[in-house]
Every structure is written in C-alpha cells, then in structure tokens.
Design a protein around this nucleic acid. Structure first.
Lengths: 235, 235
DNA sequence: CCATTATTGTGACTACCGGTCATTTTTTGA
DNA sequence: TCAAAAAATGACCGGTAGTCACAATAATGG
C-alpha cells in the first residue's frame, strides 16, 4: 500500500507551500523582517506545524537557498549543452547568473544568507546545507568545464589554471551580480543611475574586459556579445 | 569657556570606546551574535547609556561601518598620491582593499551590514548612514581618478568610459575580496584549499586578467604585479 | 560654598520573536 | 468502530532590542 509514499509526497508539497509563503514575505518585507509567525499564518498552518517541516528559521531560509541553487544550477548546466566556443559559454553562464538574480531577488537574498550562516553559525545540521553546497559545487564545475572547452577549442588562453580562472570568474561575476542586485533592490543606491549607466551596458563591458583578459589573441576581437537583457526589459 | 567643546570631545571618546567594545565582540562571536547588553557590559556602561550614544543596534554597526569606510578611503587616497602609471594605481587600490579586509574582517562585516540596511530598512535616520555613503563615494572617485590617470599616461585603454570601468573594477574587486573574506572566516569554505590555490596567487591572476582586459596594447605584458601579500603572511 | 538646574547614567521593565511542548485533532489499519 | 500512530495546534518560555522613570553627577549663578 502506497500510504507512506503518498504521505511523503504530501509532506513535500506542504513544505513547498511553506517555502513559497516565506519567499513571498521576503519579497514583500525583506529577509531581515522575515517572521516565523507570519510565515505560518501566510502558509495557513500553525507555528508548531511549521517547525515540523523546518528545524529553525535558518533551516527555512536554507530551504529556499537549496531551491534557488538547484534552479540556478539547472539553468547553468543547460548552457553547457550548447555547441558554442568556450568563451561564449562563459559569457552565457555569466548572463544566466545575472538574469537569475534580477528575476529572483528573494533567491539571491537566501543565497547570501547561506554564505552568512556558514560564516557565523555553529552549523547545527540542516539537511539543506549539504544540498546547497552540492548545488554550488555543480555550478562551479560548469564554469570549469566551460573554460576547459574554451582552452581546447582555442578561444580561451590556456596559460591559466582552469580552476583558478573559474574561481576568478565566479568571484567577479558574483561581484557584478551583487551590484546589479543592489541597483534593483536598494533604495538610495544611486550609483548607476547617477552615472547614467545601465545594467545591460555594464554587464557587457564587464564581459568585454574579462573576455579580453582571458581570450586567445586570435579570438580577441571576436565576441561582440549581444545584449543578454534584450528579452526582459529591466532598467 | 570651553566646556561644551570638552564635553563634545569626551562624548566622542566614549562613543569610540563603545565602538571598540562592539568591534571586539564582533570579532569574537560574529555580527549575528552581537548583543547590546554585552556591548554595554564590555564598554563598562549601562544599556541606557549605550543608547544615548547610538540610536539603535543598527546605528551602532553603522558607526563601525563609518569608521571602517573612513579608514579604507584614507588608505586608498594615499595610493593616489604615488607617482605611478594609472594601471599600477588600479592594482594598488585593489591590493589595498584586499589587505584591509583580510586584516579587519570585522570592518568588512560592518560594511556588508551597511549594504543590507540600505536594502531592507526604512532608513530611519542615522547620522552614520550619510557619512558611510560619502566615504564610499570617495573611494569610488579614487578609482575613477586612477583610471583617468591611466588613460592619460597611456597605460589604460581609453576606449572605455572611465566611470563605467571604475564601477566594473569596484564590483569585481568586491567579489574577489568577498571570496578572500570567506576563505579566511568561514568554516567549511573548502574551495580554495581544496583546489590547492592560495589567495595571493588568486588575486594576482585576477589582476592579470583585469589588467590584460583594460591595458593598452603597448602595456599588455608590462605589469608583473609583485605579490601584495609579501608583508603579511596569511594563508 | 550652597542651591538650582541641566546633563548624563542606570537597570528594571516592556514588547516582540524564535522556538518548545503538552494537548487535541486527524489519519491509519484492523 | 476503535485504539494506536501521526500531525497540528497555540499557549507558553527565554532571550534580546529598546524605553523610561528615577538617580547621580556636573555645570551655573549668586
């Protein structure tokens, strides 16, 4: 009899509902103002019930982060299936990351929270922590792969260590994405608009700098990187 | 009569003492576990007294951030006084940022907190908020200046918009610094050590990629960027 | 030097939130 | 139909940010 299977499924559904409630609240009021009682209300369950599905508030946010990194990783992995020169793949991975964050700020918030947790906390076990790490690791591996492809097909300068380069691209992309996030979600983050710069142009120039820095000579002028924002008209 | 001046001075001193107490506690137990009662105890004042010097916990951390950004800005401004090619100055600014964060993790924590605040909060006035923004703005301006110098002296490719390029360098540096911070301050941030990469090499390669991306052709091979870590032997 | 007033310091107290648990309600299997 | 298991509930607890009535101290003026 499939009772336990059904229960498992239902449990997962409810968990998912709670996550959605939390996501909505984060979107509305910010991660800092997230309140477990409110999450419970929004999800139409009691507080106690909420705590049967998540060990703690941390765990809840980590649950969102798990979902987020899972989605992001899937999208990045999809990029790798394309038959393009490596340097193009690197560009696409960056653009994927960028689009993901601008479209799902609440997910990015959860991802930053995850970083925070690992820094401060005593790391009392959360099921989600490991899963998050695995997801991130996968994304990173994709970046390494893209670089290796690029070195093989002659579009990326092979004098770098692929993993080290991947780390640099990861970190710098993170910085760019983080700025884009602030631009969109922070009051009084005037920098971009003050300077009359738009995100699209900024990102493309970022890729140009990086591209120029990692390309082989023969490739150097070749990536005129079309706008990744052309489909979603953000400011 | 210099009574009010003396009082002002004393007040500033006490405020400074409280800030130091808070910094120490952040260093010991992390920003998330910072506790106003403890800060008061550590500073040997009562809670009420603490709240006469800082409107709120946020305000206190913003006070640290103000101090931090002030120090960082001063160091970056000092770089600009050196008589070096622009691209070298850019490198030095990056290195200054890096060193600052590795040596003062608690300050970096406060700076990230500042970013957070601006994102979520209702921005109930804190004296420090404006000052922080001004400091950051100054640092950013230094980066723009370094780039302009580089474009003038022919070490940086003048086809970029200086401000846009500064923004890119700012954001990417932030990403790199953030990774360095995590490497030093996060349990289970295994990435670097797992890959057998050290911070020094990573940063220099970052500067190499960037340098290669923004240099003029004649400059391209020229910056063999000596190690910025050579004075402080971190892992 | 004292009396009055202004300033600064104090810690008990409140409000709020994360997390718990004894109890109730629902589901399960016979 | 019923007893046992599982899930849901919300009153409750502990801890912490922030307040406030009062106490101590310092400045002022005669």
């Amino acid at each position: 009899m499939g009772v336990s299977e059904r229960k498992e499924r239902e449990k997962e559904q409810k968990r998912s509902l709670m996550l959605e409630a939390a996501e909505a609240l984060i979107l509305e009021k910010g991660l800092d103002n997230l309140n477990m009682t409110e999450v419970a209300e929004r999800a139409e369950v009691s507080k106690g019930s909420l705590y049967q599905y998540f060990e703690s508030k941390k765990d809840l946010v980590l649950g969102i982060c798990d979902k987020a990194t899972g989605l992001l990783t899937k999208e990045i992995q999809k990029v790798l299936t394309e038959d393009k020169p490596g340097i193009e793949l690197v560009h696409m991975i960056g653009a994927t990351f960028m689009t993901f964050v601008t479209q799902h700020p609440e997910y990015f918030r959860a991802m930053r929270f995850h970083d925070n947790i690992k820094e401060t906390s005593d790391l009392e076990g959360s099921t989600f922590l490991d899963s998050c790490s695995t997801n991130m690791q996968s994304s990173f591996t994709c970046m390494v792969r893209a670089i290796q492809i690029g070195m093989q097909d002659g579009s990326i300068n092979p004098s770098y260590d692929p993993k080290e380069l991947a780390l640099i691209l990861w970190a710098t992309s993170h910085g760019m994405v983080s700025m884009a996030y602030q631009h969109q979600n922070t009051q009084h983050f005037n920098l971009l608009s003050e300077l009359g710069i738009n995100l699209n142009s900024l990102f493309e120039n970022f890729m140009k700098v990086i591209g120029c820095g990692i390309a082989t000579d023969k490739q150097k002028t070749n990536y005129d990187s079309q706008s990744f924002f052309e489909t979603n008209g953000k400011n």
